[in-house]
Design a protein around this nucleic acid. Structure first.
Lengths: 359, 359
DNA sequence: CAGCCAATGTACATCGATGTAAAAACAAGC
DNA sequence: GCTTGTTTTTACATCGATGTACATTGGCTG
């Protein structure tokens, strides 16, 4: 038995194919009687619309892609869930893609995977250059999250510079003066790491604390091994920091482990703070202070923005015709907050940490 | 400017549309001259095949779905990467879906998301019942991973019973006799938790150690909060285990944290072992002993099996016509190994743990 | 009850790629 | 040169849903 087609439904309900289509799509002018008859027929045959046909006709798939560098970085996985939930509200399906931080894969994502079967793309780039972004001719609507590569693209993120400044200020307020930045980068630039580094420098400057260029520890990647390695390197060279500003939680968790192996107490000797507020940081020993981005908001805003772009492409409805052409690129900022746990505050709040909010 | 169609390519190359299609699909009988001409035209126009058209015509999308309960459980995220990589080799695209452990979502996945636009599904069920699986009429080819719900379905997993027995035997060999199973379930059944519980019981029996039914600690879900909560409950009731067999690493990491909060040393007082070998367990304090499934193999075998099923659906080629109809359901077992770290072995291997294999 | 408007319903073309069947081109053999 | 057989290429129908344009129906007014 082959799947029922709209034709079969039409025959059973005794109406034309178009009428069935009208019922399916909630077209206004269908009498209640016909509507019910069609619904019954659909029910009886177990009819499901065939996406291929609809897609071909409408030029839309209802699928958006979420493209991240590494899905096994918890931050991206958590973000993905929010995006999925947000998209579901708009009856969009999310295709998650993992580029392995590879430029070619990111490029492929930008062009809609060679053949446009996604209506839009939410991209968290890592390896792309601004140039890559500039000359995308027939790319689907795209929203960037995290890294801002170019001023001309839609973008959603927290205020990284401000967040880093706040985190650094907190470390300074604890009396720490020798603060290393794991993942820090000196160059001016649009990247997240650069913005956070700027925030760190600003806080130091404001507090009148000297900046040692060697305090910026570059990392190859942003995983736990890299965090541990950076700490090992510093300590091996005789460095004696009293605080670590880690540019994400993975680095921080790796750093915590390395400090433990060196017998260094956290936070008594070294305070540690990260970025992202991943779940593991609520259960690590010690628990991890962190900059918590509002992930739900990032997802919501990104999907909203993307949807608006997709609607633009679909052609403005007569009502919108007065709109001033394509909106200019948006750069939206969502909230973040500093979450203080044991890695900066001591073990005073120990037991409380064990019952984290699951939101 | 609208995207070029096959028609445009045909016109430019001075051939028919079908010939262009033949070139694209590497059809045998096309002269070298025409082939080159068509290739040039494609290049010149920047033509990309339109999936919608192809899909409608062929009934295949080249998309398979990977459906997991919770993407932010690192095990699933890590598995997802392997599946993506494996699918890529076969030029399949992976649509990752997160059901939130919700039965309705899992059901929707089974039926190809209401409208078949996926050619096949790899499903890691949690909330489904065997019945759900049985009466799927027009479902796409499906391979289960992890939970085995029903004997009649294709399935890939490690030998959970054996793995749990080995883990338990190891704890026993350390002289531990009061071993709790976090996430354990008494009922006989096909589920992963049940199989692992059986392995635990088998090891106890073989070692002549009595089993206390209260040693099986049920959990609501399999996250870090649940692991911590279980430990808190036990200790609060005055329990004094000397080992914990946690049915996944998330539970184990939560348990480690709770033990720490109670001032209980691991492994001196309580040894802990988990399942899954997630990256966080290589950096926790202490590092986590675990049963490491060969995730790459699970992914590879699952995709292979799924592909075979999809090919069957596509209709056997004349060559295969002799094949004895649809192959019977496969239940494939992949390798696992016991990885011993500080949570059972003491801190002897401390420094080594910090440079984990990144494989 | 004619006349008109709005509400419903229908036939048909269309989206883009590809399978089918058959025509056209070409080669080889007598 | 003509038949026969094989490549190569083409015209056309088809996959399933939906937009367009028009036909029909029913209700209401004067």
């Amino acid at each position: 038995m082959t799947r029922p087609r709209i034709k079969d439904v039409a025959r059973l309900a005794g109406v034309s194919e178009k009428t069935v289509s009208n019922v399916i799509n909630d077209y206004t002018h269908v009498s209640e009687r016909t509507r019910r008859a069609v619904r019954d027929a659909i029910e009886q045959l177990g009819y499901k619309v065939n996406l291929a046909g609809r897609h071909l006709r409408q030029g839309r798939t209802g699928i958006i892609a979420l493209v991240v560098p590494e899905l096994d970085v918890p931050y991206f996985a958590e973000l993905a869930r929010h995006v999925i939930r947000e998209a579901e509200k708009r009856s969009l399906t999310v295709l998650i893609h993992d580029t392995g931080a590879d430029r070619d894969h990111e490029l492929a994502a930008l062009t809609g995977f060679g053949s446009s079967f996604v209506d839009g793309v939410i991209l968290s780039p890592l390896a792309l250059t601004p140039d890559d972004l500039r000359d995308r001719a027939d790319a689907p609507p795209t929203v960037l999250i995290g890294e801002l590569l170019e001023e001309g693209a839609d973008h959603v993120a927290i205020d990284n510079e401000k967040a880093a400044r706040e985190a650094t200020e907190h470390l300074l307020s604890l009396g720490r003066r020798s603060i290393l930045v794991i993942g820090g980068r000196d160059e001016a630039g649009l990247g997240t790491a650069e913005a956070r580094t700027r925030g760190y420098l600003a806080a130091l400057r404001e507090a009148g604390v000297d900046h040692d260029p060697a305090a910026l520890l570059p990392v190859r990647s942003f995983g736990m091994p890299d965090g541990a390695e950076a700490v090992n390197r510093v300590l091996g060279e005789g460095g004696r920091p009293d605080a670590l500003l880690c540019l994400n939680d993975q680095l921080a968790l790796g750093a915590l482990r390395a400090l433990y192996e060196h017998g260094i107490r956290v936070p008594e000797e070294v305070a540690v703070i990260g970025f992202d507020d991943v779940e593991a940081g609520r259960f690590s020993v010690p628990t991890l202070s962190t900059v918590a981005p509002d992930k739900a908001a990032i997802a919501r805003v990104a999907v909203e923005l993307l949807q608006r772009r997709m609607d633009e492409v679909a052609g403005p409805t007569p009502a919108d015709a007065s709109a001033p052409g394509p909106r200019s690129p948006q750069d939206l900022v969502v909230a973040h907050r500093l979450v203080l746990r044991e890695s900066t505050e001591g073990a005073g709040a120990r037991s409380a940490a064990c019952r984290p909010t699951t939101a």
